[in-house]
């Protein structure tokens, strides 16, 4: 299994989509860094002006709050876009992980080796998971560091944030892997991408629903987050980084990027079980199917 994981990791590093993701990430980080710089300047100026007007204690506290919130919003934007990049990378890189090897015959010679099919799946998962974990950790860490150095945002508990962040692409990887044992590469790509969109839209609806106090929207969001828990993980991270004392007004400020109601820790457990479930499903489906 480790042998397969190692080769799959090398394979994953050779994917063109990874090059595309790296280029995209570098562009994103550049634009984001520049944006952070100007936004921070603007926020500080605004702050200095309101302080200069010599207002009394209350409003100054309000202005501080505004500055803090604006900085958090910038962190959230970074979180949002980097989550999208790694989720799409997970889907697009692993979309044909099993199916394309069946289609082109690479997997045939492997089937007669003294390895269980389950180990092939675990190896494939491990290889891609390693690539995605390293990539996601580096990307998110870059976002956090940019915020720390340019915007001076205070950051707590970085290892936890990064661990949660990595769960997102891994969940997509598990689902796409399961799909690629059952469907053709093309069909799986379409299915996984649809799921990604549904998850993102569902999460936004839930936030908007919470803002409007609309139960219908909130429930839709809850259902989609059970069907695809990645968005809950995102909200979890969002609520950890925005964790501003002061209640719902602040949470509202972040709109669909934030987390009005923080998901419970149970959601993280659910996401991990969900991930494991799909890896299990992948090996079940793969063990049963005919190859070639």
């Amino acid at each position: 299994m480790l042998t397969i994981a190692r080769l799959t990791f090398k394979e994953a590093l050779r994917k063109k989509i990874l090059v595309a993701a790296i280029i995209l990430s570098v562009l994103f980080l550049t634009v984001y860094g520049v944006g952070l710089h100007y936004a921070t300047n603007a926020i500080e100026q605004e702050n200095a002006q309101s302080a200069g007007r010599g207002m009394d204690d209350g409003p100054i506290a309000g202005a501080d709050m505004m500055v803090e919130s604006s900085k958090k919003l910038l962190v959230l934007l970074g979180l949002y876009f980097s989550s999208s990049i790694v989720s799409l990378l997970a889907i697009l890189s692993s979309v044909g992980v099993v199916s394309s090897e069946i289609e082109n015959g690479i997997i045939h010679a492997m089937m007669a080796k003294p390895i269980r099919r389950r180990d092939i799946i675990l190896g494939k998962f491990g290889g891609y998971a390693a690539m995605l974990s390293v990539y996601s950790a580096l990307l998110f860490l870059s976002v956090l560091l940019l915020n720390y150095f340019i915007a001076g945002a205070a950051l707590g508990n970085v290892p936890l944030l990064i661990a949660l962040f990595i769960i997102q692409p891994l969940v997509f990887l598990a689902v796409t892997l399961a799909g690629s044992t059952a469907f053709s590469t093309l069909a799986n790509g379409i299915a996984a991408f649809t799921l990604y969109i549904a998850s993102a839209v569902g999460g936004m609806l839930e936030q908007i629903g919470a803002m409007l106090n609309n139960d219908m929207l909130v429930n839709t969001g809850i259902v989609t987050s059970l069907l695809m828990p990645v968005d809950s993980i995102y909200r979890m991270i969002a609520s950890l980084v925005t964790n501003v004392p002061g209640g719902s007004i602040n949470a509202m400020f972040f709109g669909p990027f934030g987390a009005i109601s923080a998901p419970s820790t149970a959601m993280v457990v659910y996401a991990i079980l969900y991930l494991a479930g799909f890896v299990g499903l992948a090996s079940f489906l793969f063990s049963r199917r005919d190859i070639g």
């Binding site: 394979e11 050779r14 015959g105 690479i106 045939h108 010679a109 007669a112 003294p114 390895i115 269980r116």
Partner: peptide
């Protein structure tokens, strides 16, 4: 039987390998 495959060799018909 997975263990028996240790003593097995197979050249598939449409062989294709990791050509990189």
């Amino acid at each position: 039987d997975v263990a028996a495959r240790r003593r097995l060799g197979f050249l598939p018909e449409n062989f294709r390998y990791q050509d990189w």
